[in-house]
């Protein structure tokens, strides 16, 4: 994802009505989170920069850095705690979250955003492993579902730290209360480094979450109503941990607009999953 350093030219204290901001930008580089698996969907390890090639809008790029499992993770959880998530479903969510946080490594951070009609941040991004457990134990599902607002907030939290960010979104329902529209969050997905893995119950048909997962290089997981959420949560974390992080400085491509990305690996049978592109400018 292109990171732009933005300088606001207007002086502090200038009234907003009079303010005509000037922006200057410079490109730091593009980061692409890539999952490479073999024919059995097991992560392929030990690849180096020489094994990857990348095209930005069809133009081959020089890869600066490929890292694997070296960077600590920011694991954001955005959970639907609306009225439909009561009883067994909430218990499953608590158990799955406990299983997930137990798998975090030293240096990893976690955050919890909850949403019903109200979006909340009971656990800001931190190394505190107990916060998520305590927050879910205190939770009382209520009201409607502001799914899009909750995802928007979750992505903002994920972007707040320079580390690799995973956002796991759990919802068993439909959006019934959001203010932010889906197009704005999808556009955010095109401009963000956060990789989104939604988990929904079967039958929810969450087009928005599926599209967001695809745009960010994540994957939608649909579970049975009584399905094992713990296994799903652990599998997502494991998959994310075994992804490569590729960095390059784009050359010979216009800065603005949509950049189609093609990531290739010179291993036969290898399957590559990465975001399909990014929004520049």
């Amino acid at each position: 994802m292109m990171r732009a350093i933005v300088t606001l030219a207007a002086a502090a204290g200038t009234s907003l009505a009079a303010m005509q901001p000037t922006f200057s930008t410079r490109v730091e580089g593009v980061r692409v989170d890539v999952l490479v698996t073999d024919g059995s969907r097991r992560p392929l390890r030990g690849l180096t920069a020489a094994d990857f090639s990348i095209r930005d809008n069809g133009v081959p790029q020089q890869i600066d850095l490929v890292s694997f499992g070296e960077t600590s993770l920011n694991v954001g959880l955005a959970f639907d705690l609306s009225e439909s998530v009561v009883g067994a479903r909430l218990d499953q969510l608590k158990a799955a979250s406990a299983a997930l946080t137990a798998e975090l490594h030293p240096g990893d951070q976690s955050a919890l955003v909850t949403f019903d009609t109200v979006v909340s941040l009971p656990c800001p991004l931190s190394a505190n492993r107990l916060c998520v457990r305590d927050a879910l134990n205190a939770a009382t599902p209520a009201r409607e579902t502001a799914l899009v607002d909750g995802v928007f907030a979750g992505m903002m939290i994920g972007e707040s730290d320079a580390g690799r960010s995973l956002l796991m979104v759990f919802s068993d329902g439909l959006d019934t209360a959001s203010f932010i529209d889906t197009d704005r969050v999808l556009d955010m997905g095109r401009r963000s480094d956060v990789v989104v893995y939604p988990i929904t119950t079967k039958g929810a048909r969450p087009d928005f979450l599926e599209e967001l997962a695809s745009l960010t290089g994540g994957r939608l997981h649909e579970v049975e109503a009584s399905g094992d959420l713990s296994a799903t949560f652990r599998a997502i974390l494991d998959e994310f941990r075994h992804r490569y992080l590729i960095t390059y400085a784009p050359k010979n491509v216009p800065k603005d607009g949509w950049h189609k990305l093609e990531v290739m690996v010179n291993r036969s049978g290898a399957r590559v999953k990465a975001r399909p592109g990014y929004q520049g400018g």
Partner: peptide, 9 residues
């Protein structure tokens, strides 16, 4: 955003 998010629901 944080100002409102940190208040208990």
């Amino acid at each position: 955003l944080e100002r409102t998010l940190v208040k208990p629901p």
